[in-house]
Amino acid sequence: MVLVLRGLAGLILYALLATAPALVALLAGPAPADALAAASSGLAWVGLAIFALEFLLVTRIHMVTGPYGQDALLQFHREIALVGAACVAAHLVLVGWRGVPPRAFVDPFAMGTVAFGAGSLALWALGALLATSLARRLLRLSYEAWLLLHRWLGLALVVAAGLHAHALMASPTPLLKALVLGYGALVLLSLGWVRVWKPWSQARRPWVLVDNRAERGRARTLVLRPLGHAGLAFAPGQFCWLRTAGPWAREAHPVSMSCSAERAADAPLEFTIKALGDWSGTRVPGLAPGAHLWLDGPYGVFTPERHEGPGFVFIGGGVGVTPLASMVQTLLDRDDARPLLLVHAANAWEGLCLRERFEERARRHPNLRWVPVLESPPADWGGERGYVTAALLRRYLPPRHTSLQYFVCGPAPMMDAMERVLAELGVPADRVHTERYDMV
């Protein structure tokens, strides 16, 4: 309940922060020429505030991420940016309507003023941000290259747009000036938190790799031990940001713990990672025992500890099964007698990640039902095949299945399908919990 209230309070605060500069500029600033000019500048202010706040949304500060979870916040970061871009587009249409030539938008030197030059640069940065984020795979941009571009383009966008706004304010009120400075400080503090404070605190808490083993489905499990510190406790289903190239390395990768959370804080931690890109495909398999790694976490609200119910249904696809593995093992290690159903989808029997763990657990614990679903099963396969559908789930769900809690993790198309299928089965939306990991 407290979390719901905190979540709502966060949303209201966000709405206030996103609209405050626009409202102050419009209501307390100098009178605009007409309603169109006022709407144009107001929309531009909303766009600028949204882009400045984007930095805060990705800081991983627990106070900010706590009520929502990192993946919901990242989705919000991505989609509210489209709202910001729409505001900027409307601003462009309105200033074009008022006589600004289109070449002033594309050529930073066309008008010979700082205001227009900065505005044009901000537009280029915004265009590049949208193109690289919406079409990263189409542009064949690696995640690592995209991340680097994203950070610099984001900073270029707010600096240029801030300059544009500053140069256009003929006589800003002290309140508006203070607001602009405040948002600038917010961006700097967010960057300082992520780029300086976080790496510095992680550098003092290294982890050492004790095992790196191959798993089914082109995945590997890294086993880490804390080195000279107390380790960490986590809730099943949570994840950490992993750095392998040093605490100050630019790239960090979000990876779920795949071991039981029912353990001492200084016991080994396990992460299961599928070979999907440059880092997971080449760097991770090459890590030798003794290597040092750095963790930022744990994060995430995708955990049964936040959503109690009379039983749990876990639906996992591919390597998406790893957070679910942690949940299932933790509940069983706690001698939880509630019914657990794990629907585990994969391409082939040989590719069922962590298969042996589930087979062994299902043998020992009668309250766990493990249902592998194979897209391309072997000829003699007598189990479930194809995709996870409503009809398939109906075969395994108990009669009062709408009161259970559902945890879904897998590739994006599967997640979309599961949200539809569970709604079709009458499961209320607040009992369906999802974690998405392939957002760009």
Partner: peptide
């Protein structure tokens, strides 16, 4: 939070921002 819920929140917030700004612009110019 599910994907759809986040999308709804974004749509509601976006509509709210635009409505607020247009209202303020209209008030200011009136």
């Amino acid at each position: 939070m599910t994907h759809r819920l986040v999308r709804r929140v974004v749509l509601v917030l976006g509509a709210l921002f635009v409505a607020l700004v247009l209202l303020a612009a209209w008030l200011r110019a009136a």
